[in-house]
Amino acid sequence: MDVLILLAIILVVLGIALAIILRSASRGRLAKLVLTDSLEKEKGFEGTEDFTSFLDKEGVALTALRPAGTAEFNGVKLDVVSEFDLIEKDSRVKIIKVEGRRIVVRKIE
């Protein structure tokens, strides 16, 4: 018998809590808890470093690129990815595409 009374009390408390939550949500009070602003580049937000200034720069592969490795551009070492094939160490490379932190290079013949 005590278990049924305790269960009834729990159900009443949960019902009251649910009613309060639904009432607050319908009046917009809970809307303050939801993030409505988006973080866009046009508004000045940048999630990662901007490497687009390196586009079309030429440099030297410091490691073999198969396809990923390291290259140096104007004294700056960057993690890069080759466009197609293996690029040997000390080869001349050019940045052809920048997608966030992914920097794609092509071997200069």
Rank of each mutant, 00 (worst) to 15 (best):
K32G: 11
K41G: 04
D37T: 14
D56S: 08
K97L: 10
I96E: 02
V76F: 08
R27K: 15
I95H: 04
L65S: 06
A17W: 15
A17T: 15
V105C: 02
G44I: 06
G69L: 01
G75A: 00
I103E: 02
I10A: 15
R66D: 09
M1C: 08
V13R: 13
L7Y: 09
S38I: 15
G47E: 11
L39M: 14
E88K: 02
I95A: 04
R23L: 11
E99R: 09
T36Q: 14
I108V: 07
A31H: 13
K94G: 00
K94Q: 03
G44C: 07
R101F: 05
G100W: 07
I103V: 04
D90K: 10
I103R: 01
I96G: 02
I95C: 03
S26F: 06
V105E: 00
L11V: 13
D2F: 04
I87Y: 04
L30C: 07
R29E: 14
E46A: 13
L62H: 01
T63H: 00
S38T: 13
R92S: 07
D37W: 13
V3L: 10
A64S: 10
I20F: 14
L39K: 12
G47M: 12
F51C: 02
L65A: 05
F73I: 02
V81Y: 03
L33G: 10
E72F: 00
I9C: 11
K107Y: 03
K32T: 05
P67L: 07
K77F: 03
T63P: 01
T36K: 14
I108P: 00
D2P: 07
L65V: 03
K97H: 10
A17S: 15
A71D: 04
A68W: 06
S91L: 00
A17Y: 15
S91Y: 02
L6E: 14
V60F: 01
L65G: 04
A64W: 00
D79Y: 09
E99M: 06
I5N: 05
G59M: 01
D85K: 08
T63R: 02
R101C: 05
L62Q: 03
A19D: 06
I16V: 12
L55K: 02
I10P: 12
F73C: 02
G100L: 08
K32M: 10
L33A: 12
G15L: 07
A19P: 03
L7N: 09
R101D: 11
A61L: 05
R101Q: 11
E40F: 07
A64I: 10
K107H: 07
K89R: 13
P67W: 07
V81N: 07
